[in-house]
Write a protein that binds this DNA or RNA. Structure first.
Length: 164
DNA sequence: GCCAACGTTGGC
DNA sequence: GCCAACGTTGGC
């Protein structure tokens, strides 16, 4: 008997803090949400093709004066059509997507644990082991991106440490 | 298929 | 508010 164990993958979920924050996620029923509204093919492909239930992620707040990672999440439902695309009243309607021919996909994530202290972007840039993280590349605009296990562990170590 | 114009993102 | 980066659009 062969049971294929897929290797757990690591992701970063980016959201503008004033738009949807980690605290907002904690307020959601069952602390879950669907990661809707992504209208970028590369991010779409990650969610549709690569993410799996059980993968874990870092939640990152962009847009503020001090961008930072703020907690961990895990994926509780893998890729399925983003139904907000054919809702004309949604934030990101796209008439070219339909239930019969969905163009955009999303996953469901659930909050895991909020960091005891945020890990600031400014701090990340000083850490050599994080230098190859996609988030730190200038001009990166993906709201969902893969990171390495090493990146995930370093961010958790910093975020859950009790001293600065 | 090329490429300039345009819109959006996001750090600073 | 500015500007760099980059994806998308549309004319040709």
């Amino acid at each position: 008997m062969f049971i294929k164990m897929e290797k757990m993958k690591y992701w970063l979920f980016k959201s503008e803090e004033q738009c949807f924050s980690y605290d907002d996620l904690l307020q959601m029923p069952d602390q879950k949400t669907h990661w809707d509204g992504v209208r970028n093919y590369q991010a779409r492909n990650f969610m549709r093709d690569t993410m799996q239930i059980g993968d874990v992620g870092i939640f990152y707040h962009s847009g503020g004066t001090h961008p930072h990672a703020i907690g961990t999440v895990h994926i509780v439902r893998d890729g399925y059509p983003d139904f907000t695309a054919w809702d004309e009243h949604s934030e990101h309607p796209d008439p070219s997507s339909s239930p019969l021919s969905p163009k955009w996909f999303m996953v469901d994530i659930k909050a895991e644990k909020k960091f005891t202290q945020p890990v600031f972007l400014k701090n990340m840039r000083t850490i050599a082991e994080l230098s190859d993280m996609a988030l730190l590349r200038t001009g990166n605009r993906l709201s969902v991106m893969p990171i390495g296990q090493k990146h995930f562990e370093i961010l958790c170590t910093l975020g859950f440490s009790s001293t600065v």
